[in-house]
């Protein structure tokens, strides 16, 4: 009985598998670095804008992690992505001829904040405080530039030790907002995160400064950027990559810019991110 009925089902399955695809849309994604739940809604507006400006069908697909964004880009399931510094470097290493085309105005001068629970009695200083050692510490996502790469680099530079050897325990909260929540609760004594996420949470009144505060900020480094695959011109016509770049640079609508959140976009190039690549090699995240 079961077997007789599975046959039509398999046929159905195969028909579905073989059904022709529509003309493929131009697809982009963004790393889920904050307010993941609202990404879909926000980036759909960006998709609409690009669709009108570029005259091709544009789709946004949400992803769950930095890795998923890079994989989708590598597998040509998305052709354009809003990456972090590190994920962008990883993606461009995996996809030859892909290029960074635009970054946020703020991304030239990005920073990481080290934050501490006030019971740790750490205060704001010019360097990372010596008393940090043997405390508990949390990064953000393992693949984050501001939540992992840069803080790890500066920890190693100052203490000449790996975070594992320096701290009593090292966690990965997975997300900048969660880093704030965990340090504010005192679960971890110290944490490191994207300064923009902190500033926004502070403005939104989500931070209790009597419990958690910034104790050090890193020097500036380049971070987020738009990266496009090198083979888009072959599919959407000569000069398509340039058109996308221009469309991004032309975004002036504050409503759209809020999605990122950035004040505007400026041109970027692969070379701008050489410091990130060197840092990643330095701490052994990339061979």
């Amino acid at each position: 009985m079961m077997k007789i009925l599975t046959l039509p089902l398999i046929t159905l399955l195969l028909t579905c598998l073989a059904s022709p695809l529509n003309a493929e849309p131009f697809v982009f994604t963004a790393i889920p670095d904050q307010d993941e739940t609202q990404l879909q809604q926000r980036f759909n507006k960006v998709a609409q804008y690009l669709e009108q400006t570029l005259n091709v069908e544009v789709k946004y697909v949400p992803v769950k992690s930095y890795t998923a964004a890079v994989s989708a880009f590598r597998n040509n399931q998305v052709q354009l992505a809003w990456f972090g510094g590190l994920s962008g470097v990883q993606a461009r290493r995996l996809v030859p001829n892909s290029m960074a085309i635009a970054q946020g105005v703020e991304d030239e001068h990005f920073k990481t904040y080290f934050i501490a629970h006030n019971s740790s009695q750490l205060t704001k200083q010019d360097t990372l405080p010596e008393q940090m050692k043997d405390m508990t510490f949390t990064f953000g996502s393992k693949g984050s530039t501001s939540g992992r790469l840069m803080p790890e680099f500066y920890i190693r530079e100052q203490f000449k030790k790996s975070p594992n050897d320096l701290f009593k325990s090292v966690g990965f909260s997975g997300d900048h907002s969660r880093t704030i929540a965990l340090v504010q609760a005192g679960t971890y004594q110290v944490g490191a995160l994207n300064f923009k996420v902190w500033d926004r949470a502070l403005a939104d009144g989500k931070i209790d400064l009597s419990k958690v505060s910034v104790i050090w900020e890193t020097p500036e480094y380049p971070d987020y950027q738009w990266t496009i695959r090198g083979d888009v011109n072959a599919k959407w016509g000569e000069g398509f990559a340039q058109k996308v770049k221009q469309a991004l640079l032309d975004i002036k609508d504050p409503e759209l810019l809020k999605s990122f959140p950035r004040e505007g976009f400026i041109p970027a190039s692969n070379e701008d991110y050489a410091p990130i690549l060197d840092t990643a090699k330095n701490i052994g995240l990339i061979e």
Binding site: H117, T136, Q184, A185, G186, D208
Partner: peptide, 14 residues
Amino acid sequence: ADTSIITTNPWGEV
């Protein structure tokens, strides 16, 4: 195993 318990003020979040 590491079974230390460190609590400060989790109750706000909880």
